[in-house]
Design a protein around this nucleic acid. Structure first.
Length: 420
RNA sequence: GCGGGGGUCGCCUAGCCUGGUAGGGCGUGGGAUUGCUAAUCCCAUGUCCGCAAGGACCCGUGGGUUCGAAUCCCACUCCCCGCGCCA
């Protein structure tokens, strides 16, 4: 959610943002609804004032045993009118909010303008793309030949894009999580394992309406949704709270399973465990002072880079274009890992600064002194490791001539072996 | 799932029976006064509309009754205790 004042004072900035994002949005209607709503607030407030005055009058007159029948008569009509106005106000408020909640975030000036991923900008590359002197396999063939996954039975039991992990791949999955948690703990992140289901208002705080349809699973008959990432649950933790400024920045290493419908992805990455409905992820999440957030954003990215450097996975960093970026983010870096089996870089990390967009939706504020006006803080999120995709990169890049997989040194003490 | 108790401003609490401007304490911030590890006093300390003056809202949430609801009624929700079920 943007600052409502921006809509009144500077609608052109919003128009430019919408154009850059290539989003159709009825901004004029929102402006109209905002105006209507505020006019109704003024009217109802005035009428309530009248009601309060008469009410006090009645109370006083009653104390001194005076006749109040004419005042009560007056109150009848005031109350009737007020009820009508209140209904209109609630309606106006609802339609305003409903529309307002679908308005995307502003965009940082450094973000390249463009319709889609073709406008993304490569920031840097790290590591040498591996060269093989034998015919390599993709992660699906490799994992199946080593009995590390069972995709057919997963399809039978759950459907497409599900998987059974088996044998050493289970261990590798757990090891990545453990390594990531240790890695972030050293950087003073607080490890946190979140609820995997959260209610609607929490979900609305972190994502934009139509994303519900495409990515979020709903629990039938309950006000509960499966989280698509621990970001959803961590961000909501401090909803409706005012945080003491001295506690900022709050840094969390969120660990959870993540559930995604992948509704818009028909046919893409159909095989294997690259694009799946469920995976584990360790996430960096930061509640930051506004003036620190861009700095924190860069630090989160370098954490992610350091992690993949330690694993020895070659990657490149992309700055997403205005059209490719998520609607709640003001600026997003993707880290794309080299996947030898696909002979390409593929997304494994997404690192975003959401400014006060989520904080406004969730009413998360901070202040340094008690009687200071509280202000909205900034929220940032970045993947540290999404296990399935990272395992794909490891399988494909670290495969050996005899059809096995070398485990990077940093992980060996977790996995308890040097080769799978 | 059943029975009982509860949810009031950052925290604690009064008010509810008997409807009529939500009071006090603590903490925190600012100020005054004083000056031996401090004390005392005053002000401020939820949200919204408004340039402001000012006003409205706020007692878990949503309804209802009423001229008027923290207070009465109904539903829901969350927390605590007990029972049941259970990894």
């Amino acid at each position: 959610m943007l600052d409502p004042k921006l809509i009144r004072d500077n609608p052109d900035r919003i128009r430019n943002m919408l154009k850059a994002r290539d989003v159709d949005f009825p901004l004029d209607e929102l402006i109209k609804l905002d105006k209507e709503r505020r006019e109704l607030i003024i009217k109802t407030d005035e009428l309530r004032k009248t009601r309060n005055l008469i009410s006090v009058d009645i109370a006083n007159k009653k104390k001194s045993d005076k006749d109040v029948s004419s005042l009560i008569e007056q109150m009848h009509s005031v109350s009737d009118e007020l009820q009508k106005l209140e209904e209109a106000q609630i309606r106006a408020e609802d339609s305003y909010k409903k529309l307002f909640l679908t308005l995307p975030n502003m965009i940082h000036e450094s973000v390249p303008t463009g319709k889609d991923e073709s406008a993304n900008k490569e920031i840097k590359k790290w590591g040498n793309v591996p060269v093989f002197d034998f015919k390599i396999q993709n992660h699906v063939d490799l994992a199946q030949s080593l009995d590390l996954v069972d995709l057919e039975r997963a399809a039978k039991v759950s459907g497409a894009r599900f998987y059974y992990l088996k044998n050493q791949l289970v261990k590798l999955n757990q090891s990545l999580i453990q390594f990531a948690l240790d890695f972030l703990s050293e950087k003073n992140y607080t490890p946190i394992q979140t609820p995997y289901m959260i209610n609607k208002s929490s979900m609305e705080g972190t994502i934009i309406a139509h994303d519900f349809e495409d990515v979020i699973y709903k629990i039938d008959g309950e006000d509960l949704y499966l989280i698509g990432t621990s970001e959803h649950a961590v961000a909501s933790m401090y909803a409706d709270e005012i945080i003491e400024g001295s506690r900022l920045p709050l840094k969390y290493a969120g660990i959870s399973s993540c559930f995604r419908k992948e509704a818009g992805a028909h046919g893409r990455d159909q095989k294997g465990i690259f694009r799946v409905h469920q995976f584990e992820k360790v996430e960096q999440f930061i509640f930051s002072r506004p003036e620190e957030s861009w700095n924190e954003h860069e630090k989160m990215l370098s954490n992610a880079e350091e992690f993949y450097q330690k694993l020895g996975v070659p990657y490149r960093v992309m700055l997403l274009s205005s059209g490719d970026m998520g609607k709640v983010s003001a600026k997003t870096y993707d880290l794309e890992a080299w996947m030898a089996g696909q002979n390409d870089y593929r997304e494994i990390i997404s690192c975003s600064n959401c400014l006060d967009f989520q904080a406004r939706r969730l009413k998360i504020r901070f202040r340094d002194k008690t009687n200071e006006q509280p202000q909205y803080l900034h929220t940032l999120n970045s993947t540290l490791v999404a296990t399935t995709r990272t395992m794909v990169a490891m399988l494909e890049n670290f495969q050996t001539k005899d059809g096995h997989i070398s485990i990077p040194k940093v992980l060996q003490k977790y996995v308890g072996m040097s080769t799978i």
